[in-house]
Amino acid sequence: MIEVMYFAWVRERIGIPRETVETNAKTVAELVEELRAREERYDVAFSDLSALRVAIDQDLTEFSASLEGAREVAFFPPMTGG
C-alpha cells in the first residue's frame, strides 16, 4: 500500500489531494500506467510526463525510480516557489 499525493493542477485534474493505492508496481512509471488505466481523469493528468515531477518519500526522483520500500509518492507540476 502506497500513499499517493497530488498537488496543484494535478490535484485539480484528478479531483483528490491523496489516496491510498494497493499496487504491485515496481517503479513509478508502472504505478503511473496503473493509474492511467483506471479512469480518464488520471489518463489526462498523466498524459505528458515531461510536464510532471515526482517525489518518493519527499525526495525528488525520476519516473524510472524503484518503489521498493516507498511509503509516499507525490506527483506535481514543476515547482514555482520563490
Binding site: F7, A8, P77, M79, T80, G81
Partner: peptide, 26 residues
C-alpha cells in the same frame, strides 16, 4: 538559495483574477 528555492522547493503559485485562475508556469 533563490535559484534553488524557485525550482526545488515544492511550492506552486496560482493567480486568481476577476476573469480566471491560472497556475503560474515554471
Amino acid at each position: 538559495l533563490m535559484d534553488f528555492l524557485k525550482s526545488r522547493a515544492p511550492f506552486w503559485k496560482k493567480e486568481i483574477t476577476g476573469k480566471d485562475a491560472v497556475w503560474v508556469e515554471s
